[in-house]
């Protein structure tokens, strides 16, 4: 079957299998920021935004993308033009192995899109579904708060 959807602002019309997961489709389309961790919806490393809301791509059928807007980390920034959240993660040391980082940044992006001035507790709650085995989370919280501060000052897109 073929489905239309928007991926990071680009229209796509692609062949999918009826039982295929969104995670596998996105990686097949070159979105390698979408990581396969647990494949049971627990770890959060496959998180993407569907119409702006975070979902687990490992537990989402690819067919559900039809007519919707999918955003992966590739849609926020690039190595040449980092998103302010990516810059904040780098500056605060919130990245170690990096496997959880795309999912963390996408849930943080969703949080800041409707709460520009979160408390540390609200940041912790927002990232609570995303596991990181390296950082201990403190620097990730710092990074999101730093990005929020910059967003409030207008350094954001």
């Amino acid at each position: 079957m073929k489905v239309y959807f928007e991926l990071n602002g680009e229209q796509k019309y692609v062949e999918i299998k009826p039982g295929e997961r969104l995670l596998d489709l996105l990686r097949r389309l070159g979105m390698k920021s979408v990581k396969e961790g647990c494949r049971t919806g627990e770890c959060g490393s496959c998180t993407v935004l569907l119409d702006g809301r975070p979902v687990r791509s490992c537990l989402t059928f690819a067919a559900k993308a039809k007519g919707h807007r999918i955003t992966t980390l590739e849609g926020l920034g690039s190595p040449e033009d980092l998103h302010p959240l990516q810059e904040a993660f780098l500056e605060t040391g919130a990245i170690q192995c990096g496997f959880c980082t795309p999912g963390m940044i996408l849930v943080a992006y969703h949080l800041l899109s409707h709460n520009p001035d979160p408390t540390p507790e609200e940041v912790r709650e927002a990232i609570s579904g995303n596991l990181c085995r390296c950082t201990g989370y403190a620097k990730i919280v710092d990074a999101v708060l730093l990005a929020a501060e910059r967003k409030r000052k207008g350094d954001w897109r």
């Binding site: 919806g41 959060g44 979902v55 687990r56 537990l59 989402t60 849930v107 927002a126 609570s128 579904g129």
Partner: peptide
């Protein structure tokens, strides 16, 4: 119940 991304689904 669960976490935000699962509640969105």
């Amino acid at each position: 119940v669960a976490t935000l991304p699962l509640r969105c689904m």
